[in-house]
Simulated assay, not measured.
Amino acid sequence: MQEKTENVIRMYEKVVYYDPANPWDWDILSSLYNDIGNMSKARDAALRIKKIAQNDSEHLMAASVLGRVQMDDDDLAGAAESYRQSLTITERLARANPKDVMLRRKLAHLEGSEQLINIMERSAKGEDVQEQLTVALGHFRQYLTLTERLIRGDPNNAKLQEDMSGIFMVIGSIQAMQANITGATESYRQSLTITERLAKENPDDLRLQHLLSTSLDIFGHIQMVQGDPVGALDSYSRSLATTELLVKGSSNDVMLQSRLSASFGYIGNAQMAQGDLTSAIERYHQSLTIAENLARSDPGNAELQYDVATSYQRLADAGVPGFTWERVRLHLQAMKNQGIFKPSYEDFLAEAAENAAREQGTPSVLDNQQP
């Protein structure tokens, strides 16, 4: 999959070389760079759109594309500013065209996305976000309503169907953060149903197959939260089968190999929850082998190094000799020393330090706190 994406990237690099003034081509190129994890080039391509934009539509595209890249690159402050710019333009366009459903739909999406960034920023500070979750849910429900309206007029539009699947996924995530597990499960189920149908109708569309695998994993996660490891194991196993088919067609694809490693880990978690320690440990080792191979091939890749730490943690929790929370801590600390440690990893490092202290019989920070 990644190899094919890189071939398309080379084609679009030639396209923008000969016609650098077309913002749509830069949009596609930015998205392709994003797909393979080259965030620096994805950002550069997005900034080129901003540089050549000549009207509201193109300025809106520039801000939206840049915001997407910033979100994926954990730049919440930058993403918030880009979404505010998008929102300002869209509000102006929507006021001038109040009957334009596409603009109203775009506005609902941006308003919801702005709230999600606000939620992430407040959560990072330990602040309450329930009010913001309710507001975000309202915007995404409006986004869903307008998307359903468009689908009624164009029921065979696969892009709109895929958008609707994504909206259900976001709504499910918000409901999960609200501790509405029943609602989240239903939203995830609706998202998965749409994705399964699209993937079945387009078996050669690798992106849709990849999306199906991701959707199955997410549905498996909510089943685990519900205390249904049997159902989760089924979802994870179906996800693994989908990923294995994709890997057969592109065995050197780093993203697919990473997904394969994750699938083995998820299956191990479900087996562990059912008390099948032997099978779980076997799956954890399979996950670790892939994760370590990928990390060795790209030692500066934060996500790949983080995956190794996650595998260490699972094996430590399973009580496998040679795997301790101190080993997890040392790996995360090495990442920090190397300069590839993301702010979102801080909680994991703190957890590793606490558990490592307990393993070694040293009083931890939490142990010393008064009840």
Rank of each mutant, 00 (worst) to 15 (best):
V170N: 03
R141L: 12
N293E: 10
Q2C: 04
E186I: 05
F323T: 02
L103P: 01
V129A: 06
R48M: 10
L47T: 04
E131A: 13
D154V: 07
R92S: 13
D253T: 08
G361W: 14
N180R: 11
A280C: 05
M39F: 14
R104Q: 15
E58A: 11
K342I: 01
K14F: 02
K99H: 14
Y236N: 09
A94R: 01
N293G: 07
M39L: 15
R358C: 03
E121T: 12
A353M: 08
D298R: 15
W325Q: 10
K4M: 15
Q369Y: 06
A80D: 03
M39T: 08
L137C: 06
L240T: 05
S237C: 02
G227D: 07
R10Y: 09
L192C: 11
M164R: 12
Q130I: 02
D100G: 07
V230N: 06
D298N: 14
R197D: 13
T214A: 12
L87S: 07
M120A: 13
I218V: 14
H59N: 14
A53V: 06
Q226T: 09
L246T: 02
L330K: 05
S287T: 08
R105V: 02
T278N: 03
H331M: 13
Y266Q: 12
K50R: 13
K41T: 05
S311I: 01
I36H: 06
G126F: 04
S113Q: 14
A136Y: 07
L294Q: 12
A334D: 12
Y17D: 15
K248T: 13
P321W: 05
G249R: 09
Q115G: 04
H59P: 00
V8W: 05
R48W: 00
N38F: 11
S239D: 03
R327L: 09
G153N: 06
S235W: 04
W24N: 14
D347K: 13
L349Y: 09
F341E: 00
A80K: 13
V65Y: 01
D253R: 02
L87A: 00
P371I: 11
Q142F: 01
L315Q: 11
K159S: 15
S250Q: 05
D73R: 00
R207K: 11
V135A: 13
R296I: 01
V230H: 10
D228E: 09
G231T: 08
P371E: 13
S311R: 15
I52K: 08
K159W: 12
L107F: 02
L47G: 04
E359K: 03
D217Y: 14
A136V: 14
L133G: 06
E196D: 08
R48D: 04
R68G: 11
Q178H: 05
